[in-house]
Amino acid sequence: MGCEVIGEFKAVTKRFGATTALDGLSLKISQGINGLIGPNGAGKTTAIRLSLGLIKPNAGKAELFGFDCWNDSCAIRRKVGVLYEKLAFYDHLSGLEQLKLMAKLKSGSESSVELKELLRLVELDDAAHDRRIGGYSAGMRQRLGLAQALLGNPELVLLDEPTSNLDPLNRAKILELITSLNKEKNTSFLISSHILPELEKVCDTFILMDKGKLLRQGSLEQMIDKTFTTKFTVKAQPIKQVAALLKGEEYIEDLSIVEDSLHVTVRDVGLFKQRLPLLIGQAGASLDEVKMVRSNLKSVFKSAVEEV
């Protein structure tokens, strides 16, 4: 996927009274599927709202497709679809009527072919015609919200917890849909979610935030490279003696014995690799195996947030 930048936050600060939701946040939204991750209260939803002009920044500048997010929000909203975590519809309408209304509000017209296609994509084609939204299940509302976000072939779709109300099967389908839309229609996505393994499967790049600041941004590999700690599994004999030796080393972040192996978290991989054979040799112990534990998004998330 291309890495053309379609949106940028430049030192954006947003305060709500005494709370600073975004603290000089600078990030770039690239074409492709972007994952927006961070602990609760990191400022993810605020960033999404700010990019649609629902919030005015106190300082800094936010742009999408070259438009200022506050001053030109209408132009942005024509190119962007959004699914919020808090779903709200006109509950007295049927799903199809809701989509027709939102299509009219978005582009001034409604294409019944497009609407039917969207409903088919989110598997709501049966219920959408005659059932009022008020009677929909949480999963159906979520799927309707997704269909609404995809109205009018948006260039960017912002999804805030898109799979939170869905069962595993439907979650997999939604993720497939996101991937296929990205490939077939070149639709970009910014997905905010706490379900990291799902994001890891579909996202090209990640934006990791905490306390209103950007912690990391890039592909998973780039994020791992920037992570300060790395985990190893060490098998050596006698294990307790090796553990005692390693405990005294300053680059060791964490160490524990699990069954017959040592789980070590290190801050300096180079120094660890250099010192380990020396320490083993000095102690007269034997080293059977050293394995670097493969980092994933969850481990990157954990270590990055803990570093703050």
């Binding site: 649609l52 629902l54 209408c74 962007v80 919020y84 709200a88 519809f89 978005k106």
Partner: peptide, 8 residues
């Protein structure tokens, strides 16, 4: 929020 997120 939903209504303000479409070009109204």
């Amino acid at each position: 929020q939903s209504l303000l997120s479409v070009p109204v």
